[in-house]
Nucleic acid binder design. Sequence first.
DNA 1: TGTATATATTGCAATATTACGATTATTTGG
DNA 2: CCAAATAATCGTAATATTGCAATATATACA
Lengths: 110, 110
Amino acid sequence: MGASKTDSFTDQQNELAILAKALGHPARIAIIEFLLKVDTCICGDIVNELPLAQPTVSQHLKELKNAGLIKGNFEGATICYCINESGFEKIKGFFLDITKYLEKKKNDCC
Amino acid sequence: MGASKTDSFTDQQNELAILAKALGHPARIAIIEFLLKVDTCICGDIVNELPLAQPTVSQHLKELKNAGLIKGNFEGATICYCINESGFEKIKGFFLDITKYLEKKKNDCC
DNA sequence: TGTATATATTGCAATATTACGATTATTTGG
DNA sequence: CCAAATAATCGTAATATTGCAATATATACA
């Protein structure tokens, strides 16, 4: 096959997987880190920051946008990109559960 | 091409991407959630929890193990699986940065 | 209106992922 | 040792991802 059997899983599981998958590429991690570093909305500039061709960067930006991890609005000739809060809020709950679990976990049998 | 240009990114970016990618499939999210739910090491049982064939589940478990997100040791005839703390610790720093950023971010220009 | 700049889309080749049947270890219990 | 049970590996088909050149689109400015 090759296609994931998304129908067999819950909406929440699929949604989390989509968010994680979007972060599953070093270029997309680099984009997020850059947006965090400059701590403001960035108009243009992202292509110059990455060691990839413009169409490739555009594609990665599109995937991050589709997943809901960044926002991008036209600001004249360029596009203004920034972190999309709501996407990261969704992942946060998942990691909070894991952190809580790790804190109380004492039966380290493995 | 099809292969990521991993050489062009930092080790940290690649490592984060590998961890996120491992979580980028609903079956693997389901495995982690199951391990969190039972709150103990699980010997066997994981195949029965998932709507996938045994070889497929075995493959997903291998990927989670390679990424450092779960541990699996032989416990007699079955294998004892549990969350691997160190893998999740690595992601935690990344999300801490994002959370900090979101808290102080006020210039919501997008 | 024309031209330069910025970004998106298309098309395609190389590679990776997903899924599973068949098979192969490996271990337990008789 | 042998049969049953559990999990890994192999082989393979279907599909997805990655990356880029070429092209298209859209906006700003002259």
